[in-house]
Simulated scan of single mutants.
Amino acid sequence: MPTSTHKFGLKIFFAAAMFVITDKAVAQSNTQVLEQMGHLIDDALFFSDQYVTPATDAAVYQAASGWITSPRKRELWDVSLGIHTNVFFTPKRDREFTINNSDFTFFQLEEGTSATVPTALGNDDQVYLSGMLGDSEVRLETPQGMDMQTVAYPYLQGSVALWGGTELVAKYSTRVKLKKSNYQVYGFGVKHNISQYLDSLTQKKFHIAVLAAYSNEDVSFNFLDIKTDYGTLGISEINGIVDTWHFQASASKEFGRFEVLGSFIYSTSDVEYKVGGEKGSIEAIIPLQDVLNTRLKEIYKTRVNYIGEAGVSYKINNFSVQTILAFGKFVNTNISLQYLF
């Protein structure tokens, strides 16, 4: 028969064994959750790319319009200031995309094996996706789009004439609140008049100019608001940041108070993505926003665009009213009221 000392030793042994077994089970559970979290991040990365890329492609066109309002040579220190409004037409092909269960490693559609969902430029249709994180279900609605066939936003643009037919041009908008999104742009450029070297053109009121410019567009959308038993994920906003170098050649002809403009634009854009919004409570376990933003570098893009422009302006004393149509993959209209000081 075991003595009391033996009984005490057995209790210690069994307690230690239970601690090891429990600790191992917790470690296995944590490993499983972290692995599942990795799959969730992979799915969020896939969905982010499909959802926001059409909007960043469109942002290039929005920022490209209206840099050269006239290729005419200005007098030294002439200053112009204009209020511009971009009206962007969202093409149907870029308002939606198809997801399949085979696209995901964590989520699955709750109904069917495939579904059509909106991009950031699309409508407000939603479907449910779900997956298991540990022993708990994670369920989400796919994000809505802007549900706007045309997107309009204002910005300011100004220029100052320097020596030798050169102008500095700048554009800026505050953070503009659009439906379920925000947009901001700023940029600067240098324009140089070419026709000043060809008297035969200027005498016939033909004007030619070239421009090099840089712009930054930041467009953000409501994204995924996911709640889990491990905390909120804190990825309620996704941003597309577009850095564009813009090269343009323009020619115009004056007809009395009217000036008709045509341009060719080459642009190259570096597109980056990041998630934001208020950080979720899951950050106590894993720095999810930082992890996602590191992973989003995998879908950074460089876009090259060739864009045509056609425009017409009408001058009334020092005021000028202008409409410019930019066309290529997308169509964007720029309407402005300018004043020459």
Results as ranks from 00 to 15, higher is better:
residue 143 P to V: 11
residue 155 Y to W: 06
residue 155 Y to M: 03
residue 158 G to M: 07
residue 159 S to D: 14
residue 161 A to Q: 14
residue 163 W to Q: 06
residue 166 T to L: 12
residue 167 E to Y: 08
residue 167 E to W: 08
residue 167 E to F: 04
residue 168 L to V: 04
residue 171 K to N: 11
residue 171 K to D: 13
residue 172 Y to A: 04
residue 173 S to F: 13
residue 177 K to L: 04
residue 178 L to Q: 05
residue 180 K to Q: 15
residue 183 Y to D: 15
residue 185 V to T: 08
residue 185 V to D: 12
residue 191 K to Y: 06
residue 191 K to T: 07
residue 192 H to Y: 09
residue 193 N to R: 14
residue 195 S to I: 11
residue 197 Y to M: 09
residue 197 Y to N: 14
residue 198 L to E: 06
residue 198 L to M: 06
residue 200 S to A: 11
residue 200 S to T: 14
residue 202 T to M: 02
residue 204 K to W: 07
residue 205 K to I: 01
residue 207 H to L: 10
residue 209 A to C: 07
residue 211 L to W: 01
residue 212 A to I: 03
residue 212 A to C: 04
residue 215 S to I: 08
residue 215 S to R: 04
residue 216 N to S: 04
residue 216 N to F: 02
residue 220 S to L: 09
residue 220 S to T: 13
residue 221 F to G: 07
residue 223 F to L: 13
residue 226 I to M: 08
residue 230 Y to G: 00
residue 231 G to W: 02
residue 233 L to M: 11
residue 237 E to F: 11
residue 238 I to A: 03
residue 238 I to W: 01
residue 239 N to W: 07
residue 240 G to W: 03
residue 245 W to L: 12
residue 246 H to M: 06
residue 248 Q to D: 05
residue 249 A to Q: 10
residue 249 A to T: 15
residue 253 K to Y: 11
residue 256 G to L: 08
residue 256 G to S: 12
residue 256 G to M: 03
residue 257 R to L: 14
residue 258 F to K: 10
residue 262 G to F: 08
residue 262 G to W: 05
residue 262 G to K: 01
residue 265 I to K: 03
residue 265 I to F: 04
residue 266 Y to R: 02
residue 268 T to Y: 11
residue 271 V to N: 00
residue 272 E to I: 00
residue 272 E to D: 00
residue 275 V to W: 00
residue 275 V to P: 03
residue 276 G to S: 03
residue 278 E to R: 12
residue 278 E to N: 15
residue 279 K to W: 05
residue 279 K to E: 09
residue 280 G to R: 08
residue 281 S to H: 00
residue 283 E to K: 00
residue 284 A to M: 06
residue 284 A to G: 12
